[in-house]
Design a protein around this nucleic acid. Structure first.
Length: 577
DNA sequence: GCCGTTTTCGGCCCGACTGTTTTCAGTCG
C-alpha cells in the first residue's frame, strides 16, 4: 500500500462524508490528512508499522486518522469507508465535478430524484425535473446542463508551459488598456505548479468596467461566466477559466497574496493574523477595521513578522518552519545553471545535428553540455552501438579541439538503456570512455516494482553511470509512471554516489517537488537537464527550475550549478547526509 | 477530526457572486 493509495482512501472518505452533510471541518480534516500523506517523502506504511505515535508526528494526522491508516495498511480496508460506499454509489461522486454543483445540491439531487450518475442528471435536467426542487430553478438547470459538458470533457488541467502562453497573451492584452496601472497573474500559475486549472489575473485600475469590457473582447475568450463590480470570470475557447479581479492600489499586495494562495498557505496566514488580533482579507491587513497594510505583498507579510515568500514555496509545507528557523532558502534560478547534461542529436532521435546543438548551447552561454544520444536497444530512435558511439565521440573530440567554441566544453555522453532483464545496453569498455553516462528505463515499464528496482540498482552499482535519467518515468496527464520505490532509489543513489535527473520537459518533470526535496534531504545532488531533442528544447530549462524552486532547492542542492570539474567530483562520492 | 505562546473545549479564513430567495444558502477560489 503506497502513499498515493492511502491518500486516495482518505480523500474518498472526505468526498463521501461531504456528500452526507457531515461537519465540514471533519471533511476538511480528512482532506488535510490525505494531503499530508501524499506529500510525505517516507512510506506511510513503514511509519504505520512503527506505531501510532510515529504517524501522529505528521501534522494533520491525529489519533483517529492514525488508527485508520494503521488499519488500512494491515487489512487493506477502512470500515468507515466501506459503510459510506454501501450508502452512496461511487458514480454519485461524479456529480461534484460539475461546476456549480457542490455537496449540498448534489445530495438533494441524489435524495430527491434518485440521481446516481451524470447521465441521470442530464435526463432529469432535460425533463425539467430539477427546476422544481426547492433551492433550484430554471437558471440552475441551465447552469448544470452547461456544466455537464465540461465535466464530461475529461477536464484536464493545462501544463504550466501551455498556460504560460495564454497568461502572457492575456496580460499583454489587458496591459494595453491605459487605465491599467498594475497587473499580475496570480494563482497556481504564479506558484509554478506543474499544471494549472485556471488563471487568476489581478489588476489595479480606476475603471473596472472598462478593463472587464476589454477582457471580454480578447480573441481567445469564448464566454463570460460571471461579472460583478470587482470580479469577472470568463472561459477561453480551450476551456480554461480565467478570473479577473480589479482592486484599488492600496489593496494590490493583499489581493496578490490572497489570490496567489495556496489555499492552505492562506489559511495559515489568516489563522496567524487572527491570533495577533489582526484580520487579513484581499483588501488589506486590518486591526479593528483600521487599515494597516496591503499595497505590497511584503507589507502584508511583515505585519505578521514573516518574510516575503517566493510564490513557489507557498504550499503550507515547510515555508513557515524555514521562516521561523534558518530563514527561507535562496532558491535556484535559471542563471545559476552552468551546464546541460542530457540532449539528443540527429544521430538518434534528435532534430538538430551535433554542431547545431553545440552552437545553440554556446549561444545560450552554457559552459558545458553532454551529448547523450540513445543506446542501441532503443531501436525506434536508431540507438547507437559501440562503434557508432565512438564515432560520435571522435567528432566531439575534434569539435572541442577545433577551438570554434572556446567557452563551451562538449562532453562525451550517452543515455544508456537499462535492459528489461537488467544490466546496461553497452559494454563496460565503451561506457568507461564516456565523460558522462545517464541510465534510463525505456522498455519493460510494466514490470512489478521489485524487478524495476533491481534494474535501477544495476545502474546504480555500475561504476560508469553518472546519473539516473527520468527516474520515475512519469508523463504528466499521459501515463502512469512505472512502479518505483522512490525513497529506496534515493537511498541507493546516496549510497552509490549517483545523481538523480530532474527532467525539465514540462510534460515529464519526473521528479516532483516532494521527490526533489527528499533527494535534497538525503544529500543526493539533483541534475536539471532539458533532454532537448532540438535547439529550442534547450530553452526548457526554466520549467525544471520552477519545479526545483517549488521543492525549495538552493543552488547547492543542484549539481549543474557547478563547473564541470567540480561536478565531476560529486559522482561516485557517497553522500554524507 | 485536528489542534493549543489565551485553550484538552471550542474554535476551525474570508469575501464575491449567483440564484432563489423577500434576508440568505450554496458555491467557488
Amino acid at each position: 500500500m503506497n502513499n498515493a493509495q492511502v491518500a486516495e482512501a482518505l480523500e474518498e472518505i472526505a468526498d463521501l462524508l461531504d456528500f452526507t452533510g457531515a461537519n465540514p471541518f471533519r471533511v476538511r480534516a480528512y482532506r488535510n490528512g490525505a494531503r499530508a500523506v501524499r506529500d510525505l517523502a517516507e512510506h506511510v506504511s513503514v511509519l504505520a508499522g512503527e506505531g501510532k505515535a510515529q504517524l501522529q508526528q505528521i501534522p494533520g494526522i491525529g489519533a483517529d486518522l492514525a488508527d485508520k491508516i494503521i488499519g488500512l495498511v494491515e487489512t487493506q480496508e477502512i470500515p468507515l469507508l466501506n459503510e459510506l460506499r454501501a450508502q452512496i454509489p461511487a458514480s454519485v461522486l461524479a456529480l461534484l465535478r460539475v461546476p456549480g454543483l457542490g455537496s449540498k445540491k448534489a445530495a438533494v439531487l441524489h435524495k430527491e430524484l434518485a440521481i446516481t450518475n451524470l447521465a441521470d442528471l442530464k435526463d432529469a435536467c432535460e425533463a425539467g425535473r430539477v427546476r422544481v426542487l426547492k433551492g433550484f430553478g430554471a437558471k440552475t438547470e441551465q447552469t448544470i446542463l452547461a456544466g455537464l459538458e465540461i465535466a464530461g470533457a475529461a477536464e484536464e488541467r493545462l501544463l504550466w508551459a501551455d498556460a504560460d502562453v495564454f497568461a502572457q497573451e492575456l496580460l499583454a492584452w489587458l496591459q494595453a488598456d491605459p487605465t491599467v496601472e498594475q497587473i499580475e497573474a496570480a494563482g497556481s500559475y504564479r506558484r509554478g505548479r506543474e499544471t494549472v486549472g485556471d488563471l487568476d489575473l489581478l489588476v489595479v485600475s480606476q475603471q473596472p468596467p472598462q478593463v472587464m469590457d476589454r477582457l471580454a473582447l480578447q480573441q481567445s475568450v469564448a464566454q463570460v461566466l460571471a461579472r460583478g463590480d470587482t470580479k469577472m470570470s470568463v472561459r477561453l475557447r480551450n476551456g480554461l477559466q480565467v478570473d479577473l479581479r480589479v482592486v484599488p492600489a492600496e489593496s494590490f499586495g493583499a489581493a496578490l497574496q490572497y489570490f496567489t494562495g495556496s489555499k492552505e498557505h492562506n489559511v495559515e496566514i489568516r489563522s496567524r493574523a487572527k491570533a495577533c488580533g489582526l484580520k487579513i482579507n484581499e483588501y488589506g491587513v486590518y486591526r479593528d477595521d483600521v487599515y494597516l497594510a496591503g499595497r505590497t505583498e511584503a507589507d502584508v507579510y511583515s505585519t505578521l513578522a514573516l518574510p516575503w515568500f517566493p510564490p513557489e514555496l507557498r504550499e503550507a509545507r515547510r515555508e513557515f518552519e524555514w521562516a521561523a528557523g534558518p530563514g527561507l532558502p535562496r532558491l535556484i534560478t535559471v542563471n545559476d545553471l552552468r551546464g546541460d547534461l542530457h540532449m539528443h542529436t540527429t544521430a538518434t532521435d534528435g532534430q538538430a545535428t551535433l554542431r547545431e546543438m553545440v552552437a545553440a548551447a554556446a549561444a545560450r552561454g552554457l559552459e558545458y553540455i553532454a551529448i547523450t544520444d540513445h543506446s542501441k536497444r532503443v531501436s525506434m530512435a536508431n540507438g547507437l552501438d559501440g562503434p557508432r558511439l565512438r564515432e560520435q565521440w571522435a567528432a566531439i573530440d575534434a569539435l572541442n579541439r577545433s577551438g570554434e567554441f572556446p567557452t563551451l566544453t562538449v562532453l562525451k555522453g550517452v543515455e544508456v538503456d537499462i535492459l528489461e532483464r537488467g544490466g546496461l545496453d553497452l559494454p563496460d569498455d565503451v561506457l568507461a570512455e564516456a565523460d558522462w553516462v545517464v541510465a534510463s528505463i525505456h522498455y519493460g515499464q510494466n514490470q512489478p516494482r521489485v524487478q524495476i528496482m533491481a534494474r535501477l540498482f544495476d545502474a546504480l552499482r555500475s561504476p560508469h553511470v553518472s546519473a539516473i535519467a527520468h527516474p520515475t518515468g512519469r508523463l504528466i496527464n499521459r501515463r502512469q509512471p512505472y512502479d518505483v520505490d522512490l525513497p529506496e532509489l534515493i537511498r541507493g543513489a546516496a549510497e552509490h554516489g549517483k545523481l538523480l535527473e530532474l527532467n525539465a520537459n514540462p510534460m515529464r518533470l519526473d521528479l516532483d517537488d516532494t521527490a526533489c526535496a527528499a533527494a535534497r534531504d538525503q544529500g543526493v545532488p539533483i541534475v536539471i537537464s532539458t533532454d532537448a531533442h532540438s535547439v529550442d528544447g534547450l530553452l526548457k530549462m526554466r520549467y525544471g527550475v520552477l519545479q526545483a524552486r517549488r521543492a525549495g532547492l538552493t543552488p547547492q542542492a543542484v549539481a549543474n550549478t557547478r563547473g564541470w570539474n567540480e561536478l565531476k567530483g560529486l559522482i561516485g562520492r557517497a553522500s554524507t547526509a
